[in-house]
């Protein structure tokens, strides 16, 4: 078999994964793109292992290790996504902007609205309120009524 076929397929799969990782907004869809990229790397490793006829079979052993590490990664990643969803009511990574730079003196309206509502009297729910005024859409609405009576 010509070596170019699997190598080009791996390259294209990797670039599809890159596109998905950059273009997607949902955290779970980004994890899927990461899986595509890992599969492209695995295909490359197996291809070159078979081509070089490695006596140690380093490529195949490494592929197995990558598959296991990817399984661990997807477990931890989904646990983190579920935790974020439980605390925020959204798995939308565009809204996880608590750690961004504080708005300077010439702040825009988004920063002003955030700093106005970012410090409520009760210390319990300020992390959810901080993300709400930027673009309060459907995903944060169905979570906040549950939080309101408890806070």
């Amino acid at each position: 078999m010509h070596l170019v076929y699997p190598a080009v397929l791996a390259v294209l799969l990797f670039c599809v994964g890159v596109y998905g990782l950059l273009a997607r907004r949902n955290a779970i869809l980004m994890l899927m793109s990461v899986e595509l990229m890992l599969n492209a790397v695995n295909l490359n490793l197996v291809t070159f292992d078979v081509w070089l006829r490695d006596t140690l079979h380093a490529g195949q052993a490494f592929t197995l290790f990558i598959i296991a590490v990817a399984a661990a990664e997807i477990g931890i990643g989904l646990a983190i996504v579920l935790l974020v969803y439980r605390n925020r009511g959204s798995s939308d990574i565009d809204r996880l902007r608590d750690l961004r730079e504080p708005p300077g003196p010439g702040a825009d309206t988004v920063g002003a609205g955030r700093s106005a509502t970012g410090h409520p009297a009760t210390g319990g729910g300020d992390t959810e309120d901080a993300v709400e005024p930027t673009d309060g859409e459907h995903s944060s609405q169905h979570r906040n009524p549950a939080r309101r009576p408890t806070a």
Binding site: L9, L13, V16, G17, G20, R24, M32, L36
Partner: peptide
């Protein structure tokens, strides 16, 4: 490749 493109 087509399935991957549809996925993303």
């Amino acid at each position: 490749l087509a399935a991957a493109v549809i996925t993303v």
